[in-house]
């Protein structure tokens, strides 16, 4: 097999005409018959778009002006980024060399963490007290990711293509629906409450042991997903709609912002904040760590179930 054949095959693979695994994997998909048609349609649309002189002129002008600036800005920003990163690397301590500043910070966390944050779990004290803004950013990233997925996958009449008519058919017939399966239902009935209680336990125990908002929220989201796959979307829709999901996320993130903003503001001005630390080891201890864990956990659970719901049927809680 010569080089040209390999190249030909590679480009066919890029176009989706050729399946590398066709003879290896069993049950691989048949080549898509409508692929050629879609390609022709796209070509025709492109031709129609470029055939009129005015639109061609607009496209040319855009290409001339915009793409030059675009390429220039891209090159400059890449070079600047590379320079900044290389400069930062040159300031890092050498491999194996002790970094006095980092040791100072971690020693402080380990030695005075319990006293200053009131949390037995040093990691919880670190991520939700000393570095709470970092965790706030992470929660916001999750929320933003949910919004992005919603923009991309939310299914309504405006963005539905005629090609997806079959999809509606499948959805109506509950073709892939296993929720009527009695085995899944019985086991779901037993398992789901245990998983949710376990998730809440991890959430509330974050300041005393391993656990916290992210892991507890992930377990709760997984419990919701299992609940959905056992009982179907109808039951979930009765209590978890898009509005409820957004409300929970919004209230959690706003509470996080204001609570932690208050603490940081008071701390920065050397004032006493009025949040009791409690007895270390009790459930109600660690000052703000417990409520912040709950806020983060709720956001994570909403995000996980939102992803699942959007990927499975294109909406959260009914169309």
């Amino acid at each position: 097999m010569n080089l040209r054949e390999w190249k030909n095959r590679f480009f066919r693979w890029l176009d989706g005409d050729y399946d590398v695994m066709a003879n290896i994997m069993e049950g691989s998909l048949e080549p898509d018959e409508s692929h050629e048609k879609v390609k022709n349609d796209r070509k025709a649309a492109h031709k129609e778009l470029t055939s009129s002189g005015f639109s061609q002129a607009v496209i040319d002008a855009e290409r001339k002006g915009f793409y030059r600036i675009y390429i220039g800005v891209a090159i400059v920003s890449c070079i600047v980024l590379i320079g900044v990163l290389l400069y930062t690397v040159s300031l890092l301590p050498k491999y194996g060399q002790e970094n006095p500043r980092a040791v100072e910070v971690s020693d402080r966390y380990i030695e005075r963490g319990l006293e200053e944050t009131g949390a037995v779990n040093v990691v919880a004290g670190m991520i939700l007290d000393y570095r709470a803004f970092d965790t706030l950013g992470e929660s916001h990233v999750l929320f933003a990711a949910l919004l992005c997925v919603m923009i991309l996958l939310k299914k309504d009449k405006k963005n539905m293509d005629s090609r997806f008519d079959d999809y509606y058919q499948i959805e109506r017939d509950a073709y892939f629906d296993v929720s009527k399966d009695s085995v899944m239902r019985k086991v779901g009935m037993l398992i789901v409450p245990c998983i949710l209680v376990f998730g809440i336990y991890i959430l509330l125990n974050g300041q005393n042991g391993p656990g916290g908002g992210f892991s507890g929220g992930a377990v709760m989201g997984a419990g919701l997903i299992i609940f959905e796959s056992a009982f179907g979307f109808e039951l979930v829709d009765s209590f978890f709609t898009a509005k409820v999901s957004m409300l929970i996320s919004f209230i959690s993130l706003t509470f996080y912002c204001f609570a932690k903003g208050y603490v940081f503001f008071m701390g920065a001005n050397h004032l006493h904040n009025h949040i009791p630390k409690g007895i270390p080891g009790a459930i109600l201890s660690g000052g703000l760590i417990l409520p912040l864990n709950i806020a983060v956990g709720l956001v994570v659970a909403c995000t996980m179930f939102g992803f699942y719901s959007l990927f499975k049927r294109g909406s959260i809680g009914g169309v």
């Binding site: 049950g27 296993v178 086991v187 796959s229």
Partner: peptide, 24 residues
């Protein structure tokens, strides 16, 4: 106990999907 509840059920659901969707 948890694994003995969940693993057979997941196998069952996987096989069910295969049974309903594989024409061959």
């Amino acid at each position: 106990i948890f694994m003995w509840f969940t693993s057979p059920v997941s196998s069952h659901v996987l096989i069910q999907v295969e049974y309903f969707t594989n024409p061959h």
